[in-house]
Amino acid sequence: MCWAVPAVVLDIDEKNSLAYVDIGDGIPRPVVIGIANERINKGDLVMVHAGVIITKLDLEAINQFIEEKKELARELALMAGDDPEKAVREVEEEFNKIFEIARRAREGEVKVVKEIW
């Protein structure tokens, strides 16, 4: 239905609802800002569909994803009669491991990415 890819906003022409974005190949491409201009700032990570910015990616919301997964784990554990706190801890550890790998990868360690990729 709607294929879209993440991109970083390089520059904004607010008057004309236009922006340059980089989808990760280093080529600045002009796109239309389809949503409220106030939502978009230089350096933001956005989703681009057919040359239209359709949303800003809110990486904080990944925490929400993690919370939901913890909730899911808790519920399942309760239903199965397991220890819900232990299930939640396991999920937390899983994500901590990923964030640790992401951190080390950012610091230049190439090998660690392989651990989960």
Partner: peptide
């Protein structure tokens, strides 16, 4: 007739761009 100025960001090969896009992929 409306011309976009050249993007002013000077960090063309900025690793942070790849990194930020990668985070979502990673998870």
């Amino acid at each position: 007739g409306v011309c976009l100025p050249q993007p002013s960001i000077d960090c063309w090969k900025c690793p942070v761009i790849k990194d930020r896009i990668n985070v979502a992929e990673l998870i």
